[in-house]
Design a protein around this nucleic acid. Structure first.
Lengths: 133, 133
DNA sequence: CCTTGACCCTGTAGTCGCTATAGGGTCCAT
DNA sequence: ATGGACCCTATAGCGACTACAGGGTCAAGG
């Protein structure tokens, strides 16, 4: 691989991504297609490394690929107000809050169900009962 | 529709399920294929109603279709010990706990990111910065 | 120079749990 | 006889990957 450029495997290792995922991001145009070497290998430059890092970090924080696309677009318009960025982040936070609340409710239900299990036969199982109509 | 039998739409309404989902459950053999009328309509009996109710209630509690398949198999072996049922429920609860913990950590990260936003331009946006490498 | 093995390429299909569409058939009330 | 609500099958799409199959490329060691 040429000086300063990364092959897909190296890029993947540095961003904690699978090679297939990198190609997938290219296919869906989240990551721009890089130049190719004589042997048709993808050759990634520093701009790819930083863009993919951004994507992965955002994914780790639970943003959807569509949200990330929007964030990347915004990040490129450096003199716009960052209100829209703030809005995306807040909307995502609200969604996380909703999920946490849902899971807490779920957890309570599971708990009371499991508590009732008297470890007898299935016929008298309170868990099965709790799931039945 | 014959006496005491339900067409797919009626079954779906009673179990808060979409018609397509009912057919999907049949296709993946989660719900047994019912008898058909002369006009080739599915005719569901009470056993289908209760089985589908069980499935939907379990889905609402977040069990996977594979877990539900296992629960349904167990529910049919009425004189076995319900240990295995208990194990599935507890494994699921543990998974819910992991998800809650993950989301709480996420929420904290999002919060501190959003807190730093000073509503300037994108160029000085702390959110974009926080997502960058 | 040749081989080996790690890496890379494309294209396609699978995962989970549905959901949606197209293009038809049935049933019942008016 | 007609309209509209319901039903049928088959197939493809969603999101975000992941996993092949069947090849090509490259660098190091013998």
């Amino acid at each position: 691989m040429v000086d300063g450029f990364l092959a897909i495997g190296a890029l993947a290792r540095r961003t904690n991504t699978k090679v297939e995922t990198v190609r997938y991001y290219e296919r869906i145009k989240l990551l721009p297609a890089p130049a190719r070497t004589a042997g048709n290998y993808r050759a990634y430059g520093p701009e790819h490394l930083s863009r993919l890092s951004f994507i992965r970090r955002s994914r780790d924080l639970g943003f959807s690929l569509d949200q990330i696309r929007a964030l990347l677009d915004l990040a490129d318009q450096r003199d716009r107000s960052c209100e829209a960025v703030d809005a995306i982040a807040k909307e995502h936070r609200a969604e996380v809050d909703r999920k946490i609340a849902d899971l807490h409710a779920l957890r309570r239900e599971l708990d009371s169900m499991i508590d009732q299990c008297r470890r007898g036969t299935v016929a008298e199982c309170r868990i099965i009962e709790a799931l039945s109509p």
